[in-house]
Design a protein around this nucleic acid. Structure first.
Lengths: 140, 140
DNA sequence: TGATAAACAAAAATCATTTTCATTTAGAAT
DNA sequence: ATTCTAAATGAAAATGATTTTTGTTTATCA
């Protein structure tokens, strides 16, 4: 599965480097969102020399080529997670374990209509994020 | 209408100061979102001595007592606008003039059900933000 | 008026994120 | 295998939004 991502890297002229692979593996092993700093802490155990800007750079690049996505949190920091679904969808975030799941749902037509009726305005995009407890955390 | 807000200030032991009043008036005159820095630039024309931290503090306090709300933008900066609607609702933002309007709509029950069915997870909260062109901007 | 709790300015601190630049590395071409 | 070149990286410094600190001022109430 990592191979699929490396293929995408190649398509975008991004080289297959040990650090990129390590980040992909880390993101894949846990489907939770993570901050550049947290990721750096983990990577420092694997690499003697790794700079925080590298982590930031790689995550940004991954986002640009559509293999990771980021979420909005009220602390106004960046959090990333693996998500290569191109299709219009939203995310469910577990507030306990921070796992992110895709939600295949989008009622944008209804929203569009509502905004049209209520405000006579033209809805173009929307952002929906759902939070709660995931299957595992709700039971424990 | 400013009086209503000053009453709320009093209820929360916040004094009626010239700067707070000025900020309330500015927020009310334009129903657009604004950053602390932009607000500061305007206030500096009115007050010889006014610090940026004051602007930040006042906006935070206003948010705490529920008379302003903030929006999420991809630049990860803070933007505030007047909104004292307590009821569950969402916001429509004009991408051209930055006007913010409340959207009286919330399909959380459907979302809850969907998350339950798709992920067996428990949806607790959600965040929806709609962007587009407001009535005025779509016509011009 | 005074008293006093809150508000404020100014300056410095904090902290996430980005830039710069010199060095190293991956991957293609030889 | 070796060379070449663009891309990747580390280290250090820069940036820029936001927050804290501290000493002074102000709003409100007795």
């Amino acid at each position: 599965m990592i191979d699929k991502f490396i293929e995408i890297l190649r398509e975008h002229n991004l080289k297959k480097t040990p650090k990129r692979i390590a980040i992909l593996q880390l993101l894949e092993s846990q489907s939770t969102y993570i901050s550049p700093l947290e990721l750096w802490d983990i990577l420092k155990q694997q690499f003697t020399r790794i700079g925080l800007p590298t982590v930031y750079r790689i995550l940004q690049q991954f986002q640009e080529i559509g293999i990771v996505a980021s979420i909005q949190k009220e602390d106004n920091q960046l959090y990333y997670f693996l998500c290569s679904t191109q299709q219009d969808h939203h995310h469910f975030i577990c507030r306990k374990c921070h796992k992110v799941s895709c939600v295949e749902y989008c009622d944008f037509d209804t929203i569009k209509q509502l905004v049209e009726n209520q405000l006579q305005s033209k809805a173009e995009t929307h952002f929906l994020q759902i939070e709660g407890l995931c299957k595992e955390c709700r039971d424990s």
